[in-house]
């Protein structure tokens, strides 16, 4: 099957490495330290009021949550092309997963977000949240390319992990907590989950007249949720290493 074509293998490899990076990294927690209090104060004083109400998270401390929220907003911004990560509630997808299928990635998030903020300070003299969007992007480009320093297993792995999870939260089934109001699927022009697609439906899609279904897979009562919601098995999430 082509799902093991080299391009996918290499992406999986990258993601797996991202997960391992987390396990191997010394998780210098922001929470409780002076760094954390400082960051939180900065949020209170300098961060722009979010355009979308963000409920409290369950698996990330507040300061890290703010940093992640800001990163996600640059990865998938809300802009003239439509709603972004904030409207889709991508951070809620990640937060929920960090308590379940992605639990093994939690240390990588804590360590990586701390390293990101520290790198912003060393490169720009300010914390990530204090930077303007163009500077945030410049920092993220360094992180993506692996040039950013201070990441235990290379900044590129951290970036690849966050980007993969951001896409999952933006474009995955709303059942998992992201893709709110189907904004991710609307962005792609994906007309949604159907259990039957007739030849006439296909022709309607080709003619641009097929209406979006706006349903989660689990809005169809026939499907058992156990396979989706069961606790992760020993290896955690496939995207960060259960195939290993």
């Amino acid at each position: 099957m082509a799902d093991e074509q080299s391009r996918v293998i290499s992406r999986r490899e990258l993601l797996r490495n991202a997960g391992l990076a987390g396990a191997a990294a010394v998780a210098g927690p922001l929470a409780g330290g002076p760094e954390s209090a400082e960051a939180a104060q900065q949020v209170a004083s300098t961060a722009a009021a979010p355009t979308v109400r963000r409920e409290a998270l369950e698996h990330l401390p507040a300061a890290e949550a703010d940093l992640l929220d800001a990163v996600l907003d640059r990865l998938i911004p809300s802009d003239e092309h439509g709603p972004g990560a904030r409207e889709a509630r991508v951070i809620h997808y990640i937060d929920r997963a960090l308590g379940g299928a992605l639990a093994s990635s939690r240390p990588a998030y804590l360590a990586g977000l701390a390293a990101l903020n520290q790198y912003a300070r060393s490169a720009r003299g300010k914390g990530f949240l204090e930077l303007a969007n163009a500077d945030r992007d410049a920092i993220l480009i360094d992180v993506e390319s692996g040039r950013a320093t201070g990441f235990a297993d290379g900044s590129a792995r951290f970036f690849a992990m966050v980007l993969a999870h951001a896409r999952q939260g933006m474009f995955g089934d709303p059942y998992y907590g992201g893709n709110a109001n189907f904004v991710g699927w609307d962005l792609l022009g994906y007309p949604g989950i159907r259990t039957m697609v007739t030849a006439a439906d296909q022709k309607a899609y080709e003619a641009g007249t097929l209406q979006p279904s706006r349903r989660s897979a689990y809005d169809y009562d026939t499907f058992n949720k156990a396979t989706a919601s069961a606790a992760p098995h020993a290896h955690g999430d496939a995207s960060d290493g259960d195939q290993a």
């Binding site: 799902d3 058992n224 992760p232």
Partner: peptide, 25 residues
Amino acid sequence: RDFAPDEIRNNVRGWPMLASHKTND
């Protein structure tokens, strides 16, 4: 009934979690 059209479950995470993962082990 175990085969939901679910990309996260099928294609992103270990599919499906009720299955044995002997092959992965």
